[in-house]
Simulated assay, not measured.
Amino acid sequence: MMQVLPIQSAATTKECLPHGRLIVLTGPSGVGKGTLMRVLLQRHPELYYSVSMTTRSPRSGEINGKNYYFVSRSKFEQLVAQGEFLEWAEFAGNYYGTPREVVLNQVNSGKLVVLEIELEGARQIRASFPSAHSIFILPPSFEELEKRIRGRAQDSEEAIARRLRRAQEEIQAADEFDVQIVNDDFETALNALEAELFG
């Protein structure tokens, strides 16, 4: 399920983009997007990482406001009704969304803004921001992805099955994106990501 509220016309958005740059990073659950982002931000503090909002519970070690903004379902739905999201989607039974105002302000102020979001949200951002640079992170194989998801030991068997079904659909969409990077060797994938952002 995906619902998006109109925020502003694509023409208006495009006028903003020469001042900054919007990077959309996506890929299936368990592919290593979060780890790549953490190291990228350590190496490049000048990047602005847009923290998403979610209704899912924090995982061990996750910090509110740093990894995600964790809110209740009712609070999220209230923000949707107020038009506060650039995009939002329901994934694996939880809502995820990108706060609108902060992202637009950062892009307009000349920052390189990185969004790490789910496929449906990434598609909507690409429709709203045609100049956004979109990057899809792929696993070396589906078997390796399943191994990584199971290795987290954080989800029930039912949740794992949902994630794997979703991952198959997402991987088929990789060609929609400007660049595909395979996260097999971590340093190689990180270097390829840096080359896309700064090359």
Rank of each mutant, 00 (worst) to 15 (best):
A153L: 13
S109A: 14
R152V: 01
S109D: 10
V114W: 01
I149G: 04
L138G: 00
S156D: 13
R152L: 03
F85N: 06
E87G: 10
S72G: 14
K111F: 06
I125M: 04
G121C: 04
L145S: 03
S109Q: 13
G97E: 10
R73I: 11
F142I: 09
L79W: 14
E144D: 10
L119T: 13
Q154L: 15
V114N: 03
E157N: 15
E120K: 13
Q106Y: 09
E77L: 14
G83W: 05
E157W: 01
Q78E: 15
R126Q: 13
E118R: 02
V107E: 02
E77N: 14
V113W: 00
S134V: 00
S156V: 08
V113I: 00
S156E: 09
Q82T: 00
E146G: 04
E84W: 08
A153D: 15
E116A: 05
V103T: 10
R148A: 11
A122I: 07
R150I: 03
R73H: 13
V80H: 05
A89T: 14
S128M: 12
R100L: 12
Q82L: 13
E77D: 14
H133I: 07
W88Y: 15
S74G: 06
R150Y: 04
Q106L: 07
L104P: 01
E118K: 05
R148F: 07
L86M: 11
S128Y: 02
F129G: 01
S74W: 06
F85I: 05
F136P: 05
R150D: 06
G110V: 07
I149E: 13
L138Y: 00
G110S: 08
L86I: 07
F136T: 02
L86S: 05
G151K: 00
